[in-house]
């Protein structure tokens, strides 16, 4: 059965499902700490849902999911302060991914790589402003690599899922 964009129930159900999924992924990520001595390295599982939303629900829907996910996980696991970091990384990453996915120059894996890298750069920028130190850029090379590696994995998984879910999630006008 086709889904219609102006059907409120369909939108409520889809967004709710995506947000719940993103929330669970963020929780999973908290359970698996990547312990290599450098802060800020993450799998980016939450971004998987945002990426899929971007390619199926469109920019507006993906934006809602990205912001609600960060606010929810921030309030549940982190606190207002860590939410600020997540928001900076999440929003920068979202804007870059939204623009790149529309430009059509990169496939979903490339878009996801840029998202992962930009997420880390956004967080470093906030850390620099809050702590009034430029030393945080020391982490940049490691975070570039981790952002690219996790980004490409998330991107390929996202691509497989979009391919299979597209016909169920694509909303018609």
């Amino acid at each position: 059965m086709p889904l219609y964009k102006n059907d409120r129930t369909v939108r409520i159900v889809l967004y709710g499902m995506m947000i719940a999924l993103a929330f669970v992924f963020s929780y999973l990520e908290h359970l698996i700490p990547l312990n290599i001595g450098i802060p800020g390295i993450k799998l980016g599982l939450g971004n998987l849902v945002v990426l899929i939303a971007l390619y199926t629900l469109g920019t507006g829907g993906a934006f809602v999911i990205a912001v609600v996910r960060i606010v929810l996980t921030g309030l549940t696991f982190g606190g207002l302060f860590s939410m600020l970091y997540s928001l900076a990384g999440g929003l920068l990453s979202f804007v870059v991914m939204a623009l790149l996915s529309r430009s059509g120059r990169l496939h979903i894996a490339g878009v996801s790589i840029c998202g992962g890298v930009m997420h880390n750069i956004g967080q470093l920028a906030v850390a620099m402003l809050v702590l009034e130190t430029v030393n945080v850029w020391f982490y940049l090379p490691v975070l570039l690599i981790s952002g690219a590696v996790t980004g490409v994995v998330i991107g390929i998984v996202g691509g497989l899922l979009v391919e299979r879910l597209d016909k169920y999630l694509r909303l018609r006008r």
């Binding site: 496939h107 894996a109 490339g110 790589i113 590696v149 991107g155 691509g159």
Partner: peptide, 22 residues
Amino acid sequence: KKSFGRRDLILLLAVLVIGLIG
């Protein structure tokens, strides 16, 4: 739809090389 193309590979390698040099 292709999810990983030539441009994506170039981007990945470029970021990895910059990171490694750093």
